[in-house]
Nucleic acid binder design. Structure first.
Length: 177
DNA sequence: ATATTGATTGTTTAA
DNA sequence: TTAAACAATCAATAT
């Protein structure tokens, strides 16, 4: 789309308006050679799949989503992804498994969703084999009533405790060949 | 203007 | 099994 050229949002010319707390944001590494890893994902041949689901966020990322909000709330001046990343990772390691549990559960939930999306994605691909992906689904960005509204029953109330993983010591099997 | 980088850890896939 | 890519984010830098 065209971002139009009018002055949608005032930007630029105001860079010095807010001080950058992260001084790290001023010095990036040298211009690395192009294609650092896998051509940066998709340097060319970018298969733009609108319905292609991205990987499921791990528990850490789920936690980060919340953490970022909190972090930014307490550090509105800090605007550097690295700052949140470092702080988040640090705290993450500081948390015990019990605290990470809810995040893992959420992550697992998202993982299932990812699989579901992937399934639908693969299905679509199979159908429009000769045609580019995206054959009919997804067209209106207004309301894509798929008609699959089920599951998602939040039983937040822990009624029963399943197996609680006591990190006592589980030395059962160690991978080996 | 667009693409990429930076930084974290966890998952996932390729070889 | 090992290793590397990629998942989100947002401003800044690179092209």
């Amino acid at each position: 789309m065209k971002t139009a050229k009018g002055k949608d949002k005032v930007k630029t010319t105001k860079e010095a308006l807010k001080p950058v707390d992260d001084r790290k944001v001023g010095k990036r590494k040298a211009p690395a050679e192009k294609a650092t890893k896998r051509e940066t994902r998709k340097e060319k041949k970018a298969k733009k799949d609108p319905n292609k689901p991205k990987r499921a966020p791990s528990a850490f990322f789920v936690f980060l989503e919340d953490f970022r909000v909190t972090f930014k709330k307490e550090n509105p001046n800090v605007k550097a992804v690295s700052a949140v990343g470092k702080a988040g990772g640090q705290k993450w390691k500081s948390m015990s498994q019990a605290e990470k549990a809810p995040y893992e559960e959420k992550a697992a939930r998202r993982k299932a969703e990812y699989e579901k999306q992937m399934d639908a994605y693969n299905k679509n691909m199979e159908e429009g084999s000769d045609e580019s992906e995206k054959s009919r689904s997804e067209v209106n960005d207004e309301d894509e009533a798929s008609g699959e509204e089920e599951l998602l029953e939040k039983e937040a109330a822990g009624d029963d405790e399943e197996e609680e993983e006591d990190d006592d010591d589980d030395d059962d099997d160690e991978e080996e060949d």
